[in-house]
Design a binder for these strands. Structure first.
Length: 280
DNA sequence: GCGCCCGCAGCATTTACCTCA
DNA sequence: CGTGAGGTAAATGCTGCGGGC
């Protein structure tokens, strides 16, 4: 992630406010679903955002029959699905049933097969994807973080999974990516905050030193030039105009030639958002 | 053109299962 | 062996968007 990536988000770090990065986390957590309306400082974690539109695909909900064959686990590995999401189940499942003969792949289960116990409580068993399946899904995710129905279908067929499972996997995968990115960004912002705090502290101290210097040498202007002190950090002559500063804040001048000792100054205030190398 | 409804996809959040220390 | 934490598959509810009317 480049620094610019996280800095073009309208995020503002304000010095002088108590740095509480945890608020950031909270904000992200609560900005649910209204991605477009984020006004709070936030990081936009945009994924590739392929947009596609599909037509309704009709399917027949197949009855029982598929078996779970787990390669690496000793559990039965039957995945169950609540029947409440019929809409979701209305996906193309053609071809899934073709995979019955495979000996090594996970095969999807069906709603009707989902054993409910006597009380009718569905027993949700967790499917564990094989390494092969995970690897292929990962590969696919690298190519596209979202899938169109055809891709989903093809992938599902390839993996002997139901399209819904592929879809869920991609959803969860996107969520994990986003979470990871959020953590990274949070760390980055913490560092930025620390850096800026340090910088501010340093500048405040520098200002105090300059003020003290000015007080101790009130008539320095009449002294020979050789005795003038030079600011060690910015190579600006001490006692230059406008060193008064207001209320503890450090004025960052643009190097305008106003006083008798005006020198072109280096840009002193460093903004981690524009100076990535120095920031973190 | 505009508003309404519908279907769909994606997301955030939650739940539940599984593994492992 | 029991347990808690962490990972993750799956469920649920909501929102935004596009298309049809």
């Amino acid at each position: 992630m480049g620094l610019d990536d996280s800095c073009n988000t309208g995020l503002v770090l304000g010095l002088g406010l108590s740095p509480t990065p945890n608020n950031y986390n909270h904000a992200i957590k609560k900005s649910s679903t209204t991605v477009d309306h984020r006004l709070d400082p936030s990081l936009t974690l945009s994924l590739s955002g392929e947009s596609y539109k599909t037509k309704t695909v009709e399917m027949t909900v197949v009855g029982a029959g598929d078996q779970i064959c787990r390669q690496t686990s000793s559990h039965s590995g039957i995945s169950s699905f609540s029947s409440g999401r019929i809409k979701r189940e209305r996906e193309i499942c053609s071809g899934e049933e073709e995979a019955e003969e495979t000996t090594e792949r996970v095969v999807c289960s069906r709603v009707s097969e989902d054993h409910e116990d006597e009380e009718g409580v569905s027993a949700r068993k967790k499917l564990r994807l094989t390494k092969q399946q995970s690897a292929l899904l990962e590969e696919s995710f690298k190519l596209h973080s979202t899938l169109n129905p055809k891709q989903k279908q093809a992938l599902a067929r390839q993996l002997n999974l139901r399209p819904r499972q592929v879809e869920v996997w991609f959803q969860n995968r996107r969520a994990r990516t986003k979470l990871k990115q959020t953590e990274v960004d949070c760390e980055f912002l913490k560092k930025c905050c620390e850096t800026l705090t340090d910088e501010n502290r340093r500048l405040q101290k520098e200002l105090q030193d300059l003020k003290a210097l000015k007080l101790s040498q009130p008539f320095y202007m009449h002294m020979p030039a050789a005795t003038l002190t030079m600011c060690p950090s910015c190579e600006r002559l001490g006692g230059g105009g406008g060193a008064g500063g207001g209320g503890g804040t450090v004025a960052v001048d643009g190097g305008a030639a106003t006083g008798p000792f005006s020198i072109v100054t280096k840009p002193r205030f460093y903004n981690p958002f524009t100076n990535p190398s120095a920031a973190c």
